[in-house]
């Protein structure tokens, strides 16, 4: 639940910053890639903290991490219960997800 709350808060901040920009209707969307990250890296910390897309992407990214965190907590709970069969299954699911992400990005 904490992950969802953090994500939702970041998204709301992102939208408030987005709507406070001049001519925000026509703002061009930045694409999340290495070029955008490099541009961001060159900006001051104040500019980064006032960039709505930083908050929007951060909110989405935090949300995407929540199922993985949930799997880790589930695996930990099974380990505490000494249910090694399900610890194994949880590790297997994490492995398959990790591998599919790595292979898809490589291809």
């Amino acid at each position: 639940m904490a992950g969802v709350l953090v994500s939702g808060t970041l998204l709301v901040i992102g939208f408030v910053l987005y709507a406070s920009q001049p001519e925000w209707y026509d703002a061009t969307l930045p694409v999340f890639d290495t070029e955008w990250l490099r541009t961001l890296h060159e900006q001051s910390i104040v500019a980064i903290l006032l960039n709505p897309y930083v908050f929007l992407y951060a909110g989405i990214f935090v949300l995407m991490l929540t199922p993985i965190l949930r799997l880790l907590i589930t695996g930990w709970t099974f380990a505490v219960e000494a249910d090694w069969h399900y610890v194994g299954i949880t590790v297997l699911v994490l492995l398959v997800i990790g591998l599919s992400i790595v292979f898809s990005i490589i291809h």
Binding site: L11, G14, F15, F32
Partner: peptide, 14 residues
């Protein structure tokens, strides 16, 4: 791949 439109995605998520 940069396919996420942050505005639509964030609005839909909210």
């Amino acid at each position: 791949y940069g396919h996420l439109n942050p505005l639509y995605t964030a609005a839909a998520v909210l």
